[in-house]
């Protein structure tokens, strides 16, 4: 198939960006979206031009590295997949495809389609962890009984790969689905109880400091999330935050 690509290009963090148009020909419908971009980059390199910078790593939908806002949607038009799992058969011969980086004040552009998502790492550093004894006497996780419902919900929340699609697709660039998932996966389990109050307060404080927007419950994040993280996690974040705010001791 032959396609016209309209790709956002930006030379560096402080340069001015522009949309550029590239034709690509003989694209196989079995290719992944990233393989199609590889073809384009090979063309550009052969022509002595600068290839398009984009993030990618495992290319099997589990690392959370690939991004891209494709035709107005995070990870493109397909549901429950990352860009690397998006097949070119989802497009038609002759289509024009718009490709842009994630847009958020908290995700500054590094180059072309690559954005800096370390704001999410800093939120995790603020409280997205449990403290365990690492002296070699670590208890078997299954030694503590956990209700099946809670274990399932914690597992579902833990499937978040931290790609940032929720922030990219949210009209407010809110990171509530990401933080909701990360708070939930620990708050639901007995191992997460020790830091439960501090965790949610610190993670929300860091989220605000990074310049993410507020949640207005449009639900776009849940639809575009490649892992299908549920809005229930945002509600849990809200109730965890409310309770923690009331419970926290005076500092």
């Amino acid at each position: 198939m032959n396609l016209t690509l309209k790709i956002y290009r930006q030379d560096g963090p402080n340069s001015k960006g522009r949309m550029e148009t590239y034709p690509v020909t003989d694209i196989s419908e079995h290719m992944s979206f990233l393989e199609m971009l590889d073809v384009l980059n090979e063309q550009l390199v052969n022509d002595g031009k600068e290839p398009v910078a984009f993030d990618h790593d495992c290319r099997e939908g589990i690392c959370g590295m690939c991004s891209l806002y494709i035709n107005g949607e995070a990870h493109g038009p397909d549901r429950g997949v990352t860009t690397c799992q998006l097949h070119m058969r989802k497009f038609k011969d002759g289509d024009t495809i718009h490709i842009e980086p994630w847009r958020a004040a908290a995700f500054p552009i590094i180059k072309d389609l690559v954005v800096d998502r370390s704001a999410m790492d800093r939120i995790m550093n603020a409280g997205g962890f449990v403290s365990v004894n690492t002296s070699g006497n670590t208890q078997d996780a299954n030694a503590i009984p956990i209700p099946k419902v809670d274990a399932d919900k914690a597992f579902d929340a833990a499937t978040c790969i931290g790609c940032g699609a929720c922030v990219a697709t949210c009209k407010n660039s809110s990171a509530m689905l990401f933080v909701g998932a990360k708070v939930s996966q620990l708050a639901l389990l007995p191992q997460g109880q020790v830091e439960r109050t501090d965790r949610v307060l610190n993670m929300v404080a860091q989220m605000d400091e990074e310049g993410f927007g507020n949640c207005t419950n449009t639900g776009a994040c849940e639809v575009e999330c490649p892992k299908g993280i549920s809005l229930e996690n945002i509600a849990r974040l809200n109730s965890e935050f409310l309770i923690a705010s009331l419970k926290a001791e005076k500092k």
Partner: peptide, 8 residues
């Protein structure tokens, strides 16, 4: 929180 809008 989103100073630059999406073109599409």
């Amino acid at each position: 929180a989103r100073p630059e809008k999406y073109a599409f």
